[in-house]
């Protein structure tokens, strides 16, 4: 909702100034699990209302108003930083941004992107505060047609169908197994040593360091090396 208010404001201004609107939407990249993202979403809903596909809404609304709209490709990173970077590319006459109106704990924990942009921007900034639903009817009806399905923010993977033979499953599995053996053979080897050759395992070779202990400690670096080696190999398949 705040984003819609800002989009409308930007269009109003663009109309007056006969300007082009550049749209920037920065998705927040978080390492959260699905349930956490849902929790975030539920909370965010209180401030934003439905979540629609921002750039598309702006494009359609632009067509309706007869204003040129360009979408800016965004890279992930801090949200404020991303917006400022796009601003440096576009060198706009004005940045229009919506204030979500978060307060209290939400405000403390998440901070305010709009304020961050205002503080650091080298360009004039207009910030919309709150929104009046009656003024937003047009853009709202467009947005309602472009609501994101609730779980859409979780990556949708497209399947590029590959014939089974071309996947070389056998070869890949063989490679994985070979790598796995470099670790598992000595790993289970320690089990054999401890179970059947206890005398050898408890023989001290360097000071009090026994064969079993050295074997055990060596498994850690071996495991890491195995992992790195496999990563190198597998990278060729990416």
């Amino acid at each position: 909702m705040p984003a819609l208010a800002a989009t409308k404001k930007a269009m109003d201004l663009a109309e007056m100034m006969d300007a082009t609107v550049f749209v920037a939407t920065v998705p927040e990249k978080t390492p959260l699990t699905v349930l956490e993202q849902m929790g975030e979403h539920v909370e965010e809903f209180r401030y934003t209302g439905e979540i629609a596909n921002g750039p598309e809404v702006a494009r359609e609304y632009g067509i309706l108003r007869g204003i040129e709209v360009r979408e800016m490709p965004m890279e992930s990173g801090p949200i404020v930083g991303s917006i400022l970077r796009v601003a440096d590319e576009v060198k706009p006459d004005m940045i229009v941004i919506g204030n979500s109106g978060r307060s209290g704990w939400e405000r403390i924990t998440l901070g305010s992107v709009a304020e961050g942009v205002m503080r650091h921007s080298r360009y004039p900034v207009t910030m919309t505060k709150g929104y009046n639903k009656d003024e937003l009817t047009e853009i709202l009806s467009i947005a309602n047609g472009l609501i994101k399905p609730s779980m859409d923010y979780v990556t949708e993977t497209k399947v590029v169908k590959v014939p089974l033979q071309e996947l070389q499953l056998g070869k890949r599995l063989g490679m994985s197994f070979a790598a796995l053996l470099t670790f598992l053979a000595p790993y289970f080897g320690l089990g054999i040593l401890n179970s059947f050759f206890e005398d050898v395992a408890t023989t001290a070779v360097i000071g009090s360091m026994t064969v079993g202990l050295i074997w055990l400690l060596a498994l850690f670096p071996l495991g890491i090396i195995t992992g790195i080696g496999f990563h190198r190999l597998a990278a060729e398949y990416d």
């Binding site: 927040e28 990249k29 978080t30 390492p31 890279e75 992930s76 990173g77 801090p78 949200i79 404020v80 930083g81 991303s82 400022l84 970077r85 403390i108 924990t109 998440l110 901070g111 305010s112 992107v113 304020e115 961050g116 503080r119 650091h120």
Partner: peptide
């Protein structure tokens, strides 16, 4: 809390977003 907030409101842009994601 601070790092979450920082990742939203930091003014410097770093393309490290993705690199950070694997470290995170």
């Amino acid at each position: 809390i601070y790092s979450r907030r920082y990742s939203r409101t930091a003014a410097e842009f770093y393309v490290a977003g993705r690199k950070i994601s694997w470290l995170q």
